[in-house]
Amino acid sequence: METKIKTGPVRPEMQLKAAARKRRRYKSVFTYAAFVGPAMLFFLVIQIVPFLMGLYYSFTSWNGVSSAVQWVGFENYTKIFTNDTAFYESFKFTTKFMLAAVVISNLLGFCFALLLNAALKTRNILRTVFFIPNVIGGLLLGFIWQFIFVKGFASVGNLTGIEFFKMPWLGDETTAFWGIVIVFAWQISGYMMVIYVAALQGVDTSLLEAAKIDGASGWAMLTKIIIPLILPAFTICFFLTISMAFKIFDLNISLTGGGPFNSTQSVAINIYQEAFQNNRYGLGTAKSILFFLVVAIFTTAQVMITKKKEVEA
């Protein structure tokens, strides 16, 4: 036997409340779309679409100019893995440069942060001085340091007779490598310093005062209290320096141009020459896809390792 449930008429105030909730929902969706929509659109057009197009072109033999695009499958990737020694050498240099640059940049940035976190009267001026190199563009910075290495160091060496300044800084494979590392660290350490300073200022001073009362040394407080508490800052700084060092291009091309004899050629320069100078756009994009995967693996592994350390700390 069926029972019928009688429902009374919907009251006008309930209809008004439902309509108001619907208007608020539409308003929140519209507000979200107005603020996030343009950013999402630009990200899609500038990042996602070119990446997908590059992925497609990496399977072609397109020269970057012609309208004819021939599909070659994995032929470009086969060439890279079989007989492209220049790419391997550039990748070897870039990896070695990344390791040296990450260590030196973060060490300098952290030391600057410790110095400026102290009660110094000139710390605001020093912060500006240390951060200014990061404001200068890579190309301009490279040409400035090229003049310093070639002309400035030679003049100082002739006046003082010190062999350090007489070395062919950009004319030898070893010294050119360290020259690029020095300039990169000089440019980026100020940016790392800002992140470390922000982290140090968030450390609870009562912990440091209690450790000092208990007789802890400065080194013990640094290694046992300060560094474990600011490990998230190390995670951020390592991620930034690894990605920046891997993608170095403008500083490298303005300082050495990849020389002498391609001994300081980064992967970015190798990809640029392959695509835009040798007109092998398909092969160049295949190299860029592999490069993207390697950088993603390195940075992801670094973040996972340092995040694990944060949890343990």
Results as ranks from 00 to 15, higher is better:
E2C: 00
E2Y: 03
T3D: 06
K4G: 03
I5N: 01
K6P: 00
G8T: 11
V10Q: 03
M14H: 14
Q15S: 09
L16M: 11
A18P: 00
A19P: 00
K22G: 00
S28P: 00
S28A: 15
S28V: 12
F30E: 04
T31P: 00
A33F: 14
F35A: 09
V36A: 13
P38G: 08
V49K: 01
P50C: 12
P50D: 08
F51V: 15
M53L: 15
Y56L: 12
F59G: 06
T60R: 07
T60C: 09
N63R: 07
S66H: 09
S67D: 11
A68L: 11
Q70C: 14
V72G: 02
E75Q: 15
T78H: 09
K79G: 06
I80D: 05
N83M: 08
T85W: 15
S90W: 14
S90Y: 15
K92Y: 10
K92N: 02
L99W: 14
A100P: 02
V102H: 02
S105A: 10
L108R: 03
G109A: 07
F110E: 04
F110S: 04
F112S: 01
F112V: 04
A113D: 06
L115H: 08
T122D: 03
N124M: 11
R127Q: 12
R127P: 05
T128K: 07
T128N: 11
V129Q: 05
P133D: 04
G137C: 12
L141D: 02
G142I: 07
F143G: 00
W145F: 15
Q146R: 15
V150R: 02
F153E: 09
V156F: 14
V156Y: 09
N158D: 09
N158L: 07
G161D: 05
E163Y: 14
E163R: 05
F164C: 05
K166V: 07
K166A: 13
M167W: 11
M167Y: 14
P168Q: 08
P168F: 14
P168E: 12
W169G: 07
E173G: 08
T175I: 03
V181E: 04
V183K: 03
V183L: 07
W186I: 11
S189N: 03
Y191R: 02
M192D: 07
L200Y: 02
Q201I: 10
G202H: 01
D204C: 04
T205V: 09
L208T: 01
E209W: 09
A210Q: 08
I213V: 15
D214C: 06
G218T: 06
A220K: 13
A220H: 11
K224Q: 15
K224L: 15
L229G: 00
I230D: 02
A233L: 10
F234Q: 04
T235G: 05
I236N: 00
C237K: 00
F239T: 14
F239S: 12
F239H: 02
I242E: 04
S243M: 08
M244L: 11
M244D: 07
M244P: 01
A245L: 12
F249D: 06
T256D: 10
G259M: 08
P260C: 08
N262Q: 07
S263P: 10
Q265D: 12
S266K: 02
Y272Q: 10
Q273V: 05
E274T: 15
F276M: 04
Y281N: 02
Y281W: 11
L283P: 01
L290M: 07
F291C: 04
F292I: 12
F292D: 02
L293D: 06
I297Q: 00
A301C: 08
E310F: 06
